[in-house]
Write a protein that binds this DNA or RNA. Structure first.
Lengths: 195, 195, 195, 195
DNA sequence: GGGTAACCGAGACGGTACGTCCAGTCTTCGC
DNA sequence: GCGAAGACTGGACGTACCGTCTCGGTTACCC
C-alpha cells in the first residue's frame, strides 16, 4: 500500500482548500487574465512556495477546482431515443452558467502552453466526451446508429460548435442550439453516407 | 476620401514593416507565448513607443500580419456542386500550414481579452465566413439548399470542428476531415429536418 | 555690425515670449523638478524644435527669464555708511519673494551640469556681486575699508550664508539676518586682521 | 532592543554592499548626473526591485554611502585656542578630496526634492555642524566666546562660504581660506557687537 | 516677382530610464 | 518536512521625455 507517510509535517488540507477557494474567488472578482500565483497565495494567506509546491502554474490550480465539479458527473437517464438523450444531455451541459469565463481562461492557457493543453484535455475534456460516448453506445444497442457512422466526428461536431460559439460569442449557446444539434446528430448517425 | 495627411512627420512605412516582420519572425522562432512588445521592438530596431503608438498589444501586431494574408482572398471556383465546392474550399483552407501556432496564439489572446476578441472576430474570422457564405449562395441558386436550412449553423459546425481539432489536437485536420465535413454539410443543407 | 539679417524668415518674438512665459507658469504651478522641454513647448503652443533651436535645455530657458529680472537692477542709494548701505541692499535682495524655488532649481541644474554652471555664474550670480562691489568701492572712498581687507571673501561670506540658508532652510533669510550680516561685514572691513 | 528578526528570509548584506559599492563606482566613473537606479542595479548584479525595496531613489543610495563616511567622525583635538581648533578642523574638512562631485550631486538632488533635502540635512549636514559646535563649547569654557555671540550664525558663515565656493568654483577652497575663516570667526566670537 | 533660406506648427522617430508587477527560487523561523 | 513570511534575481510592462527628424506652410531677403 501507499497510504503510509514518511517523516515530516503532513500536507495541510486547510492550505489546499484555501488556495483553491482563493483562486476561484479571484477568478470571479477580477477575471482569469488577472489571476496570479502571487495574488492567489496572498488571498489564501499562504506562502507562495506552498502553492508552487503542489501546482506548477495558476492554470493547474484552476484545473483542480474545475475537476472537482467535473467529478460530480452529469447523469444521463435513458430518454428512449438518441435524439431525446442528446437533447437532455446538452440541456444539462448548457445549464452550467457562470463557467464561461473560467472555461475560456483554461482554454487560453492550454493554447499557450502545450504541456497544460495535455492536462486539460485528459483530465477534463475527454471526461466530458466519455459521457457523450455512453449515450451513443446505448443508441447503438437500440439500432439507431449506422454501422459505418463515426461517433468521434459527431462528438467533434457538437463540442466544436459549442466551443466555437462560446469563444466567438457571435451566436447563443442555448436550448435551441441543443435541440438542433440533437436532431442533426441523430439524423447523421442513421444516415447511409454514400448511398 | 480620407487619404489626406495632417501636419507633422508622416508615419514611417519602413518602421511598420519592420515591426510586423519582426513579430512574425519572433513568433516562428520562439512561439506566441514568448512574444513580447519589448522583443518585437528590439528586433525591429525600433523604439518601444513606436510600437505602442500604433498597436495597443502584441496581439494587435500579429493580427495585422494575419489580416494581410487574409486579404489575399481564397478564390472559390465553381466545382459544380455544393459538396465539391466545399471540399475544394476546405482543402485550400487546411493547406495553410505553419499557421497553427499563430492562430492558436491569437485565439488565446482573444479568450483573455474581450476587447481583442471583438477585433479578431470582426477583422479576421468573419471575413473567412464570408467566403463560406458565398459558396452557400451559389448552392442555393442551384437548388441544393432546402428553404429552411440554416447556413449559419452549418458554418459553425464546420469552423467549430476545425478549431476544436486545432486546439485539442486529438484528431487530425486533414483532407479526410474535409471530405467528411463536405458530405455532411451538403446532405444537411438538403435535409427536410422535421418531416 | 551684426544686426543685419540674412535671408529667411525672422525669429518670432511672439514664440519667444510664449516659451518664456510658459516656462515661468509651469514652474510656479508644478515646480522646477517637473519642468520639461516637452511641457514648455506644449503649453506655449509651439513645436519642440522651436524651443531647442534657441535654448539647449530647460535651464537655459529659465535662466533667460531670470536674467530679464536681474537687469531691472537693484538701485543702491547712498545711505551714508557701509553698514547702512549693506543693510538696505540686503533688505532689497531678501524682499524678492517667490523666487526661492526658481533659484534653487537653477542651482540644482548648475550642480549637475558644469556647462550650465558657467552660464549661471556669469550671466546671473556675478551680476549680483557687481552691485555688491560698488557698495564696497563707495565705502573705500569714505575710508571705511582697511587697505588689506578682502572684499571678495566678504562677499562670499554674505552670499554664501544667504544661499546656505536658502538651500538648507534650517534658519530664516530675513531682515534680522540682513542686519547682522551688515554689521559683521562693516566691522570686518575695518578690522586690522593681524595686529 | 529591536534586533530580533521576524519570519522570512533576512535582508542580504551582500546585496546591500554590492549596491552601495556599485553606486560609488558609477559615480566616480561617470558622474552623479549619469547615475541611474537601473545602472546601479545592473552593476551590482542585483534586481532593480532589490534597490527600490530599500531606497526610494538614487540619492538615498548615495546618501547612505556618504553617511558611512560621516560616521567615521572627524576627531577635533584641543589645539589650545578657538582659532587653532578651527584651523585644524577646517584643514581636515578640506582635505577630503574627490568628494566634491558627490556632494554637489547630493545637494542638487536636495534642491529638486524637498523630501530628500530633509534627509540630507538631518542625516549628514547637521552631523557635521555638531562637530563644529563642540569646538565652540570648548572655546566658551576658555572664555573666548562673548556671551551674546551667535554660534549658529558663525557656523552658517563658515559652511555657507564653503558650499558657495564649492558650487560656484570661482575661488579655491584651500588651507588659505581655512586660515582666514578661522581668524575671522575667532575675532567675531569675541567681538562686542554693538559697542 | 520668383527664388532661396530660415523660420514656424506638428508630430513621428530611435532611445533610455522610470517605477511596478509577477515569475520562480531561496532562506529563515516555527510547528 | 511542511508551512508562512518575505527577500532574492530576472525581465516585461507601459509611460514619460529626450533630442532629432521630416513634413507642409509661412515670411522675409535678394536678385
Amino acid at each position: 500500500m501507499n497510504g503510509q507517510r514518511g517523516p515530516g509535517r503532513p500536507r495541510s488540507e486547510a492550505a489546499r482548500r484555501a488556495i483553491i477557494d482563493a483562486a476561484i474567488a479571484e477568478l470571479h472578482e477580477r477575471g482569469y487574465a488577472a489571476l496570479t500565483m502571487q495574488g492567489i497565495a496572498a488571498r489564501a494567506g499562504v506562502g507562495k512556495q506552498t502553492v508552487y509546491r503542489w501546482w506548477p502554474s495558476k492554470a493547474d490550480v484552476v484545473l483542480e477546482a474545475v475537476a472537482e465539479w467535473a467529478e460530480e458527473q452529469v447523469a444521463v437517464p435513458d430518454e428512449g431515443s438518441l435524439e431525446a438523450d442528446l437533447d437532455a444531455f446538452l440541456a444539462a451541459t448548457f445549464r452550467q452558467r457562470g463557467q464561461r469565463p473560467l472555461l475560456l481562461g483554461l482554454m487560453a492557457e492550454a493554447l499557450l502552453d502545450p504541456a497544460f493543453a495535455v492536462q486539460l484535455r485528459d483530465r477534463f475534456l475527454l471526461a466530458r466526451r466519455a459521457a457523450f460516448r455512453s449515450i451513443f453506445e446505448r443508441a447503438a444497442a437500440r439500432g439507431e446508429v449506422a454501422p459505418d457512422a463515426d461517433p468521434e466526428l459527431l462528438m467533434d461536431l457538437v463540442y466544436g460548435t459549442l466551443w466555437y460559439r462560446l469563444m466567438l460569442d457571435h451566436a447563443p449557446v442555448d436550448d435551441e442550439l441543443g435541440r438542433r444539434l440533437s436532431r442533426l446528430v441523430a439524423r447523421e448517425a442513421k444516415a447511409t453516407p454514400s448511398a
